[in-house]
């Protein structure tokens, strides 16, 4: 009994030591995964991501507009409306990436 308790205790302290060691060695592990770092080398990643988001919103808008035009034969009205909405959606996507964290809007 006593022996087992001792064993458990030693295991616990081992876990604590391991956690402390990992914290020391691998500091990046403790960072939250979602936060955007302001590290300069990661900046191009965010820029590229923002560009793709901007483009994809527009692409979806054009695709939907084209599809609706084709379906309803209302050329070119749906295309015009939905590409503008798509651009707005792209800007919204970029805003969600770059918005400061202390602003709570969606």
């Amino acid at each position: 009994m006593n022996n087992e308790e001792k064993k458990k205790e030693s295991f616990d302290s081992f876990d604590q030591k391991l956690a402390a060691f990992e914290k020391r060695v691998n500091a990046s592990k403790n960072k939250a995964h979602t936060e955007i770092s302001d590290n300069n080398s990661e900046l191009w990643r965010i820029v590229f991501r923002a560009g793709v988001e901007l483009f994809s919103g527009f692409a979806v808008g054009v695709a939907i507009g084209f599809g609706l035009d084709y379906w309803l034969s209302t050329k070119p009205w749906c295309m015009i409306v939905f590409s503008i909405l798509g651009m707005a959606a792209g800007v919204l996507n970029v805003w969600r990436i770059v918005k400061p964290s202390d602003i709570s809007t969606k």
Partner: peptide, 21 residues
């Protein structure tokens, strides 16, 4: 609402284009 819907629909597009590109 349309802007939000388009923004939602653009997610798989941006997700796939990024990896592919």
């Amino acid at each position: 609402v349309p802007i939000e819907i388009l923004s939602y629909l653009s997610r798989p597009v941006s997700l796939s284009i990024r990896l592919f590109a």
